[in-house]
Design a binder for these strands. Structure first.
Lengths: 256, 256
DNA sequence: TCACTTGATTGACATTTATCAAGCTTGAAC
DNA sequence: GTTCAAGCTTGATAAATGTCAATCAAGTGA
């Protein structure tokens, strides 16, 4: 493994507090692997032998039931995934596949758990990391149960706008059908949802989306930090909530 | 606080490994409080000053947006709740209210975090507990996005049947409108979903539900350990997954 | 006993979402 | 250039879900 990659993950909150020796021990057994797009890294129900850390590219987490599939999250670097299964030595509840050529660091789960038991600072960091993932999922469920399709899309667009720097034109980072699955709708309905947002100043041109009238769009979307990971650090959040890192390094915060 | 209560929570996986002195320190600042039914313990967005442990009664966790409300989980003793917010010292993402007269142990969050930092065994236990909660939520989202209303109800009934000992007649533990909200539908549609399950041998009589033909019901429901917390320990799960406690003491495993 | 409240159910209807089929665009391969 | 495939869009229709209003049933208290 290259030193540059080690330094990149060393800066993650998950690893930043631990002693150098432990960090070296943890990563000494790790692999850095390249996968082409469309590779399934793991199937639902599989035993989990590694903690995965996405370094480059993007990964989709999926759930399946009865021949139906849904996207639970789309990850961007640097993100850990299937951490909870690693902590509990349990089988995966989601499949993971690359959406494009990706570079992924794989840390053996066994060693991860051993070091978690030996290094108290690391154990606390793991607890904090999983807690952040948990809160991402709570937001995701609320988003899914409380909003309809157009509302979910509108909030997705506003979130992306913030994350991409706030300009009026944003670029959809994935295929529209993947986005549809993430938002819990069909590709056809995503098209219609975009069309319905035209009244609110949303202009679509392939993967480019222009938000010409953010005020009415926000009036429709009603973004809310209790459902969306919207705000940059400190903005709109006071006190304790502001302490949470943004964007969180953890897995599901990106899930609409 | 009564010794009997302390002994009850001492047996939880979360606390069972920690040193006696630390456990005493943790609980010395705790309150055991009684609340009547319908009491809101905490509102969404509130700062979280306590870890809550439900000792008796039942508690509903809710999410709100735009004057709509949804039930995220219904807790039964003994369950912890808002653990992730305590770990991160963040604001609550869900409201909590008692559904009936309830007894709740409140452990100051500040002390909880201090002891988590001091006691490595406890820190690992917290990481494991939150991981279990996380996996409960993953199941919950998959259930919500992949199944329709009748399928969610069918699986809820089968899960309840297992939890209540496997007899043909089960008792719905909550009001039907609360159940409807948990299952992500209106009370009216829950009524219709029950009616549609009559073809599969489901007979409803107030809060009593009789499952007369489990085989066709299961053929419809297609229960699956990757979506449902169905199986007793070891049953149907081999190897690693079987190690997870069932039913988990943690918060959202009960969420259909 | 009798109103009265609360929760549950039912029917009629509206809205939302999914499904299926067809057509459109775009870009790569030949 | 032409062909082709993949992704996207559109329209027609069906299915699922929500809303509103009315009714019913059970339990409560005067």
């Amino acid at each position: 493994m290259r030193t540059a990659d080690l330094e990149r993950i060393r800066t993650l909150q998950l690893f930043s507090g631990m002693a150098e020796a432990r960090f070296n021990e943890l990563t000494s057994g790790a692999y850095l692997q390249n996968f082409p797009g469309g590779t399934t890294l793991m199937y639902e129900g599989d035993p989990v032998d590694f903690l995965y850390i996405l370094m480059e590219g993007s990964v989709e987490l999926q759930g399946t039931w009865n021949d139906k599939e849904t996207t639970l999250a789309i990850l961007r670097p640097i993100s850990t995934f299937i951490l909870a299964a690693v902590v509990l030595d349990a089988n995966a509840l989601m499949s993971a596949r690359t959406l494009e050529k990706s570079q992924i660091l794989m840390i053996p789960a066994e060693g991860f758990r051993r070091i978690m038991n030996e290094d108290p600072i690391f154990a606390v960091a793991v607890a904090r990391e999983v807690s952040g993932c948990y809160r991402g999922l709570v937001r995701s469920i609320k988003n899914q149960k409380l909003r309809n399709g157009a509302e979910r899309l509108a909030n997705y667009l506003l979130t992306q706008q913030v994350r991409q720097g706030g300009a009026a034109i944003i670029t959809l980072p994935h295929e529209k059908r993947t986005l549809a699955s993430l938002l819990g709708m069909t590709a056809e309905n995503l098209s219609r949802a975009f069309a319905s947002l035209a009244d609110y100043g949303v202009e679509v041109n392939g993967p480019e989306v222009k938000i010409t009238r953010p005020v009415p769009l926000k009036r429709l979307a009603k973004p809310n930090p209790l459902l969306d990971n919207h705000a940059p650090p400190g903005a709109g959040l006071t006190g304790k909530a502001a302490k949470e890192m943004w964007p969180p390094a953890n897995c599901l915060s990106g899930a609409a």
